[in-house]
Simulated scan of single mutants.
Amino acid sequence: MESLGNRLKQLRQNNRLRQDQVASLVGVNKNTMCSYENDVRQPSYEILVRLATIYRVSTDYLLGCESKRTVDVSGLTPKEIQTITELVADMTEKNKKLEGL
């Protein structure tokens, strides 16, 4: 199972954020954020919820209880949502075929 620290670091990098930026958003210092990402310290429940909100994932995802990630489609038209859904399905099918090789 992937650790909380690994997920936090991956999400931060995927969102092209620096540790100091995330630390500022959640109300901790950069060293504390670094400790979370290196699994030296665990965030409080309040900070965990803030991190989940920033990254638009569930706390279950951060904690490794859930491997599925969701995509926030609010603000998109039904046609745009359908296009994204089809793209995800196509990529999933392609990856399944590649894994079978």
Rank of each mutant, 00 (worst) to 15 (best):
Y61N: 07
L48E: 05
I84N: 04
E66F: 11
T83Y: 09
E86N: 08
E80Y: 11
L63F: 07
T85M: 10
R41G: 06
K30P: 02
A89I: 10
L63I: 06
I81T: 10
E37P: 03
T70C: 11
S44P: 08
I54H: 03
T85K: 08
E46N: 08
E37R: 00
Q82S: 13
L62E: 09
A52H: 04
S35T: 14
D72W: 04
S44W: 12
D90H: 14
C34E: 14
Y55F: 08
R69N: 05
Y36R: 05
L51G: 01
E80F: 15
I81L: 06
S67I: 12
E86L: 12
L76G: 05
S67H: 12
T92W: 07
Q82E: 15
G64P: 02
K68E: 11
T92A: 07
Y61M: 09
A52Q: 02
G75K: 01
V26H: 02
T83M: 10
E80I: 14
M91D: 13
G27E: 03
T59H: 00
Q82L: 15
T77C: 06
T53D: 15
T85H: 10
Y61W: 09
I47F: 00
N38R: 10
T59P: 04
I54L: 03
V26M: 05
G27P: 04
L48V: 06
S35V: 11
S35F: 14
P78T: 02
I47H: 03
K68W: 10
V88W: 03
R56S: 11
Q42A: 15
G75L: 00
G27A: 02
Y61E: 09
L63V: 04
C34Q: 14
T70W: 09
P78S: 00
P43H: 02
E37T: 01
T92R: 04
